[in-house]
Every structure is written in structure tokens, then in C-alpha cells.
Design a protein around this nucleic acid. Sequence first.
DNA 1: TCAAAAGTGTTCTTATTACACCCATGG
DNA 2: CCATGGGTGTAATAAGAACACTTTTGA
Lengths: 255, 255
Amino acid sequence: MIKCAAYNKSVFFAPNYTLTKNMSEVESFFKSAFSVDNVIFGFDSGDLKILLIRRGQQPFQDKWALPGDLVYPNEDLDSAAGRVLEQLTGLRGVYLEQVKTFGAVNRHPLGRVITVAYYSLIKISNFKLTPSSFAQTAQWHSVMEVGELAFDHNEILASCLRRLQRKVRTGPVGFELLPQKFTLTELQHLYESILALPKDKGLDKRNFRKKILSMELLVQCEEMQEGVAHRPAKLYRFDRAKYDQFLSEGYVFDI
Amino acid sequence: MIKCAAYNKSVFFAPNYTLTKNMSEVESFFKSAFSVDNVIFGFDSGDLKILLIRRGQQPFQDKWALPGDLVYPNEDLDSAAGRVLEQLTGLRGVYLEQVKTFGAVNRHPLGRVITVAYYSLIKISNFKLTPSSFAQTAQWHSVMEVGELAFDHNEILASCLRRLQRKVRTGPVGFELLPQKFTLTELQHLYESILALPKDKGLDKRNFRKKILSMELLVQCEEMQEGVAHRPAKLYRFDRAKYDQFLSEGYVFDI
DNA sequence: TCAAAAGTGTTCTTATTACACCCATGG
DNA sequence: CCATGGGTGTAATAAGAACACTTTTGA
């Protein structure tokens, strides 16, 4: 006898299913829900940060947690993750990447919830908490100083950080965390921060600049840095059009 | 007013929830299910293959589909993917990697089903279909000649293949697809096949061997290849213990 | 004039590429 | 003895790593 019931157990495959029919069998498949959790990265004061929310209710009341929500019935997963971000920050069209789905049976103390983890990259300078009750409970935390989070959110954060660390070296996503115009030193510090390089093992300034400029993906702005108590740096911006063209010619970003 | 209901809508957060209470609101979150789909890769006759199942029922009756199943209520996601594989092949302890979750609202014609995609790597020489009804409907297909699959399974396959293509260059997973003892030429053909290199752009034999042997992760077996109508090749095996040791010393596999 | 960060080239080392012939076996 | 794939080294090129001083500004 074959055990793999495959999709047969699903109500969607029982031609004459109603919600009250065969409940004992079907019920168990539906005492479950799915959610998205979003690790929202920002970069500020040379430090990689994430936006956390202090939980107002049980379970894990008063613990910090990743922003997340159940996925609405008529909503794609990516949309749900985007919605969570927009409701919290008001930002749209932000870089968003699905990372991994967490579904351990007991990951949620009150029932079966599997969660799809995403991370987003935002320009923290654009950031303003929406004027809502969230404003009181959402806060930036240095990634390196995050304590014990609710649920399995430490594990989720670790996965998303590892993914970002890989991604930042194989795609031009670092720029999503910087203002439109940035200095090469800022960019270097961003990389060092994401890659969690110890201060004495940082990137070599000359080699980094040589490498990044040789890609020809940055264009120098007219303006210079202003108001600093030292020689002002040149400002650059990422040239996405050029990158898209290079991409179509088979170029692979690698740093 | 804050819109992000967060977890509040979940029955798990309503302290006095029963299945019949507040059905109109809660119902919609539970007219949904989650499944796993597993892209099972094998390597045979110099060709990368996947195991597909011909569907016996609607929807997509008689179409080829990835093996998959709903996730049982008391089962982790990885376990579910492993179970699907074991029920189909009888194999356990096989390489398994989660890739991506697909949850487009209309990906399943009969309801909301989000599916977590996995791929597995099996030594096809170990493979024997379990003596079940599956035996009649499961079949190996060359990855390059897969036609139109059920649901969004072509998209899932594409994601899993891309992931395998990256993984095989950054981790010692290719060996999972070969017999314990293999020749360097077999290994090279495996790489060429996974990376889908056109025949005239294949890897250079000498450079490939130099690179792979310089890693010192292969040990030469006593035996030689037998029964071939040409000079018999040396057989090698992957030394996992050595790899684990290298790993702990900070080694990174890269090919 | 001092502090602080910006900016800039060269040498050395290592990894990658390109490339052609002899060898061992079975039929 | 022939067809088939196995096995081997070197030279050229490209990429990465190491490294120190001068410049410009504001305070």
C-alpha cells in the first residue's frame, strides 16, 4: 500500500468538499497558518542595523521580534513581505529578497505556523516610522548587539545575514543601503560592516577603490562632501542603467 | 489607526479560540495549506536527470509533476521533503536543500497552497523505485528535455537548478550524485552537465584535474576502472573527513 | 599648525588560462 | 593494429595582496 497521500488529503482535491465535511481528517491540515517575517536592514553611523519590534502581547511579550504578519488569503508572499515593510516604514519599491522558510513543528508555541523569511534593504536616511502605535515599539538595533529575540527569530536573522553577506559580494545590492550619493569610504565601511570584518582585518583602502572603480559602475557626481573637518571626499552614485547593460552582456558582479 | 494586524488575526493569538468561533474572519486564513515539492536530481549516462511523476488525477491529470506532498501537522518541513523522497525511492540520509517557497495566490487552481521547494541529490546507481503504484508513474527525465510540467513546477525546477549550479561550485555536493568511486572524467562530465556548458565550451581536462586534485579532497582508490575498451581510469573517492577538517580550519571550497 | 580622513602606484605573489602529445586497454 | 578515452606539464596572463606617503579641509 502506498503511503504518500500526496495532495489527496487536501480539501482542494476532494471534489465535493465543504468546510464541515470530513472535518476530523481535514481539520488537522488547517490548524496551521503561514506568515512572513522581514529582516529590515539599514546602515547608519558605520553600523549595520535591523528594525525590531517590541511585542505587546503573549507569547514573548516585551521581547524584541522581527516585523512580520500572517499572509492574507489573496496576497502573494512577496507582497506580504512588502506590506509589512510599508506599514512600518512607509517605504515602497524597496529591495526585498526571500531567504528561507522556517517550519519546525514547535517554532510557534501556540500552533503550527510556518514563516517565510525575507530581508529588505533600506536607505535609512529615508526612514521615518509611520505615525502609529508602531512608532513606540519599533527600534533600530545594531546587528552585532541583538539579544535574544522572540520565537526562532535569532535563527531567522542569522540566515538572512548570511544571505546578505553572500549577496553583497555577488550583486550590486550594497548601494540599496546607502544614500543616492556616497563616498568610497562609506561604501567600504558598508562592506566591512556587512561582512563583519574585525577592525584589524578590514579591506585595504587602495585595493578596494581600485577594484570598485574598475567595475565602471560608479559615476562621480559634481558635488563633493560638505561640512566635514577634513579633506572633503568625492561623491559617487551607482549607475544602474550601466549595470543592466553590462548584465545583458554577460557581466557578473563579484567583489 | 494601525492596519498591520500582525499576528492578531491568527487563531493562535485569540486566547479563547475554538474552531467554530468567529469563523467568518478566521476561516479565510485557513482555507490554505502548505506542501513541499522535491526536485530529485540524479546523474546517469553523462546527463543530469530529475525524477518526475505523472499525475493520475485532476488538476493537470496526465501531466508530469515534481514529487511533493502536503506537510503533515506534526512534521518539520525538511522531514516532509525527506519523506517524499523516501516514499518514492526508499533512500534515506540523502543530501537535501531547501531552495525557495512559492506562494502566488493562483499557483494552485483549486485553492491557496504555498509550497516549499527542495532539491535532493541521489546516487542514481542506488536508485530503485519502491514497488508501489508509483513505480508505474515515476520516471527519470533529462533536465534539458523536460517539457511543460504541472502547476508552476517549471519555475520551481528552474530555481532549484540555478541553486544547484551555484552550490556545486561552492560546496562539495557534486559527489552526492556519483557512486562512491568515480573517475575524474566522470566528475568533470558531472560538472559540465550541471553547469549546462555547451560541448564546445567544456572544461579543460588538464586544468580541471589540476584544480580538483590540488584541493586534496580526493583519495585514489586501489582499484582501477574495469571492463572499458580503453586505458582504464584511476578511481577516486571524496574524503569527507578531510573536508570536515579543512572546513574547521577555515577552508572554502570553490571551483 | 594640527587632526582627520582623502587620495594615489608599484611590486610581488598567486591563480587562471591556453595548449598537444603519448599511454593502456579491448575488440 | 586501431579506436577510445586516460593521463600529463609549461608558459603566458590576469587577478589579488601588501604596502606609505602627500593632500585638503575645518577647527
